[in-house]
Amino acid sequence: MPKTRKLTLMAMLTALSLIVFVIEAQIPAPVPIPGVKLGIANMITLVAMLVLGRREAGLILLVRIILGSVFAGGVSALLFSIAGGALAYAVMCLTLKSFPEKMLWAVSILGAAAHNAGQLAVAIALTKTAGLLVYAPVLIASAIVTGAFTGLGAMYLTRAVKRLDKRA
């Protein structure tokens, strides 16, 4: 992929992930359980990993997290975002090669679970309330549902982006 093309695609994916992140933050939580959300922005991280590479995906994620906390959330949310994002990124990097492209949803589930684990750890550290650990099972269950959804979305999105790339 030519350099300019790569840079443009990275910029576009960053903007896209920021938009979905900000929009998702406005949607009221469907269940009264802190930390349960779709995580659509993670779709973009996965697409970037597959189309551009892990390093580029990491950069896009970093910029999205920092800008995301500027537009929605604030400093407190930044801590949660970094912990969740970094863990999810690490787990997805490690597991991406272990699954075929058709099973991207499994990678996404593992990433979502890692994200929720990171956020729960920050929540327990900040509030010093160990009792929050009872939310762990429900956060894992929610990661399985939302991770599968965003993973499937990322798979189809990746195919579409690769098709476009071939045509160009």
């Binding site: 802190p34 930390g35 407190s76 949310a77 949660f80 929540a123 900040l126 509030t127 309330t129 009792g131 929050l132 009872v134 939310y135």
Partner: peptide, 16 residues
């Protein structure tokens, strides 16, 4: 009952 605490993460508030 003891079990699931109430939590308001934006305000760093928990009731256990």
């Amino acid at each position: 009952e003891a079990g699931v605490p109430i939590v308001c993460l934006p305000h760093r508030l928990t009731i256990e």
